[in-house]
Design a binder for these strands. Sequence first.
DNA 1: ATTAAAGCATACCAATACGGTATTGATTAA
DNA 2: TTAATCAATACCGTATTGGTATGCTTTAAT
Lengths: 156, 156
Amino acid sequence: MLKIGKLTDYGVVVLNELAQAGALKLSTDDIAGLTGLALPTVRKVMKALVDSGLVMAQRGARGGYRLARAPGQIRMLDVVQAFEGPVALTECAADDHQCDITASCSLSANWGGINQLITQVLARVTLQDIRNPERQEQLVRDALPLTSFIELVNLS
Amino acid sequence: MLKIGKLTDYGVVVLNELAQAGALKLSTDDIAGLTGLALPTVRKVMKALVDSGLVMAQRGARGGYRLARAPGQIRMLDVVQAFEGPVALTECAADDHQCDITASCSLSANWGGINQLITQVLARVTLQDIRNPERQEQLVRDALPLTSFIELVNLS
DNA sequence: ATTAAAGCATACCAATACGGTATTGATTAA
DNA sequence: TTAATCAATACCGTATTGGTATGCTTTAAT
C-alpha cells in the first residue's frame, strides 16, 4: 500500500483551511467545524503542525491558529515529516542500526537513491500546488517524462 | 517515517541473490543461508514473489527458484506492489470510499498527483539499477534537477 | 513405484503502531 | 477576574505486521 498516516492527510486538510482563512485566526472549534474532524483529533493534528513550525498558535481568548508562512513556502515534505518523521523507506536507512542479515544488506544502502527521489518529489509540491489541480497536472507532466513501459496505477 | 514493510526490503535482498545466481535455481534453504533470513520468513517472501510473477518456482526434488525475467525488467514498483499492494498514499485514493469529512476532502484527490510522481519514480528504478550504485547516482542526477531550496534528508 | 527433496498453504501468536478519546493544566485578552 | 482558548499527557482498543509452526502436495531420481 505504501501509505501515509491518516493524521498526515488530516494535516493537509487543515492546512488547506488555514490557507483559505488567510490572516484570520481559526480556533480548534472552527477547524473541527470546517473539516468535520473530531475535536480531540484536531488538537493532535495542531500539535504536530505547531511543533514543526508550519503553523503559529496564539493562546488565550480570541486566540487561534494561522499559517506560519505562505502556502507556496510549505512543502509536502515538511508536512509529511511533521507527522511521520524523517523520510526513510527502510529501517536500515533510518539509523545506522546494524542489521543481522548478511552482506546482501548492503543493498539497503541503495534504497537511499529511491529515498532521495521520493524526497525530491515531496519537496517539489507545495501546499499552494496541491490547492490548485491545474498546477499539479503541470507538475506531473513536466517533472518526469514517462518512459514507455510505465504503467499508471490506481488513480481513482 | 513513510516506510515500506520489512518484507518488501527482504524481497529486494532475495531478488538480488537470485540475480546473482543467474540460471542456477536456489532452494529456500540456499536463500536462507545466503541472506541470513529465517526459513519461514523466506517462505513468506517467496510466496509473494511467485504470486506476483516476478519469480518462477520449480517444485519437487532439485527444484528451486529463479527470476522470471532479467533484472533490468524488474521494476521496484513491481516489487513494492507485490508486497504492499497498489501504491495509494491515502485511503481515499485506494477505493472510492466515501469519507465522512467534509468538502475539504476534495483535497485528497490531489494526493493523486503525488501518487503519480512516486509511482513513476518506483517504475523507473529496476533491480539492475539497484544492484549498481553508480547507475543509481546517475538516475538521481538526471531525473529531477534540484530546485534551490531542496533539503536532502536523512541519507545515511 | 518408491522415496526423499522441495515448494505450497494455512493458521497462529506476539508486538507494535496507530487512530481515537478524555482529562487536566497553562495562558491571555477582555 | 474570568472565560476562552491552546497545551500536555495519558489511556485504550484495534489493526497491521513480523515472525513461527505445522501439515500437505508436487516431482525428480532411483
